[in-house]
């Protein structure tokens, strides 16, 4: 089932990329990033069937990084909302100059 799992993983990753590019709600963009991480995890697990269990250990680390990223990212979103009263990325473009 390696080829099928990799196909599902590729489709999910692409859906995540398209979501990041087309949505403006910061929280949904953030959830799209989580979807991309999940797609990569699926690839890792699929490859662990043919290359040994190290892939599953990597999934473990990816999940830890995702948890840390969710905590910090959502704190940033809350701080942004407190300043601008919005999470629409169109209104949060100060760095663009």
């Amino acid at each position: 089932m390696l080829a099928e799992a990799l196909f599902f993983s590729a489709v999910l990753f692409t859906i995540g990329v398209v979501g990041v590019l087309t949505r403006r709600n910061a929280i949904i963009v953030f959830m799209c990033v989580e979807l991309m991480l999940n797609a990569v995890n699926l690839s890792f697990v699929a490859f662990s069937q043919v290359y040994g269990v190290a892939g599953q250990v990597f999934v473990f680390f990816v999940m830890t990084v995702a948890a840390a990223e969710a905590a910090v990212g959502l704190a940033i979103i809350i701080a942004l909302f407190r300043h601008r009263q919005t999470v629409n990325l169109q209104n949060i473009n100060l760095l663009k100059g």
Binding site: L21, T22, R23, R24, N25, I27, I28, F30, M31, A70, A71, L74, I77, I78, F81, T86, V87, N88, Q90
Partner: peptide, 21 residues
């Protein structure tokens, strides 16, 4: 945690503020 933040910021309603680009 995501749902908690959505609830905390009161973003539950589908916003019509040009969400999609």
């Amino acid at each position: 945690v995501f749902l908690f933040v959505i609830m905390l910021l009161n973003l539950g309603q589908p916003s019509d503020v040009a969400d999609a680009r």
